Amino acid sequence: MPRPPAARAKLLDAFITILNEQGERAATLEAVATAAGVSKGGLLYHFGSKDALVDGLMAHLVDLADEDVATMRQAPEGAAAYYVRSSNFEDSALDRAIVAATRLSQGENAAAQQALLRMQQGWLDALTDEVRDPAVARAIILLGDGLYYRAAFGGKVLAASTEEMDDLLGIVRRIVDGGATA
C-alpha cells in the first residue's frame, strides 16, 4: 500500500484525534484543518467535504484492518491465538481508527458502520478458515472483543496480565484443536 501524502495523513490523524478525544460534533472541517496545521483550503484540496474526510478515514481503517488480517493469517501461533493476543487496546493506528469509526458509527454513519462490518468480517473469515466452524470462530471473536473492550474502556489496570493471557490462549488452543475442556 503506497503511503498517503504527508498532509493527507496529518489531516486523517487530526480527524481521528478530534473524534476520539472530543467526539463527532467537534470534528468540524475548521477544527481538523487547525489541528493538522493546514488551511481549510488545504484540507479541501485533499478532502472536498466532511463526507470525503469520513470516506478517507474509512479507507484508512479498511487498509489497516486488511493488513491486520494478513498478519493474522500468517501468524506462527495461528489466527485464533493471534486474534486473542492482539485483542488489547494499545493506542496503535488501528486502535485509534477503530475508536474513531465507532464514534461515527454510533452517530449512525453508514460508511463507518460498513467499514467496521468489513473489518469484523475479515477477522471472522480468517478465524473460520483456521477453526472450520463458524460458531467457534464467532466465540473467539467475542472473547477477543471482551478483552479489547476491557482494555480500551477500563484502562491498563484491567488489561489481561501475562498469566491470564496465557490461560486464555491455552483455552483457545484446546478449542481450536477440538476439545473445549481440559
Rank of each mutant, 00 (worst) to 15 (best):
A115I: 03
G144D: 04
G144L: 10
D166L: 12
T102C: 01
N109H: 06
L143D: 03
I140M: 09
P134R: 09
R85F: 06
Y148L: 06
I141S: 13
L158S: 15
L64Q: 12
K156Q: 12
E108L: 13
L168W: 14
V136Q: 11
R118D: 10
R132F: 05
M165S: 06
A139K: 00
A111L: 06
Q113I: 06
W123N: 14
Q114H: 08
L116P: 09
A126Y: 12
D95C: 09
S161N: 07
M119G: 13
A97S: 10
A70Y: 00
D68N: 07
D91K: 09
K156H: 11
A97E: 04
Y83S: 07
A100V: 02
N88K: 11
G107P: 01
T128E: 14
A65G: 06
I141Y: 10
I98D: 04
G170M: 05
Q114Y: 03
A135K: 07
R96C: 14
S105I: 00
V136M: 14
A75K: 01
L142C: 14
A159T: 09
F153Y: 15
A159D: 13
S87C: 07
D145F: 04
E77Y: 00
E163S: 15
N88S: 14
Q106H: 11
L94K: 04
I98Q: 04
L117N: 08
A160I: 01
L94H: 08
S86C: 12
L117W: 05
E67D: 06
R118L: 07
D166N: 15
G107A: 08
A126C: 09
L158V: 13
R173F: 05
S105P: 02
A160V: 00
D68I: 00
E108A: 13
Q113Y: 00
D145P: 00
A126E: 11
V172W: 01
E90L: 12
D167Y: 12
L116H: 02
L94P: 07
R85N: 05
D145T: 11
G122C: 01
S86V: 03
I140H: 08
R118A: 13
I171M: 15
Y82M: 01
A151N: 08
V84P: 00
G122V: 04
T162S: 15
D167E: 13
F153K: 14
L147G: 04
Y82S: 03
A75Q: 03
Q114D: 12
D167W: 12
D125H: 12
D129K: 02
A112L: 02
R73A: 12
E130S: 02
D66T: 11
D68L: 00
N88H: 09
G170N: 08
A70E: 10
Y82I: 02
T128W: 09
E108Y: 10
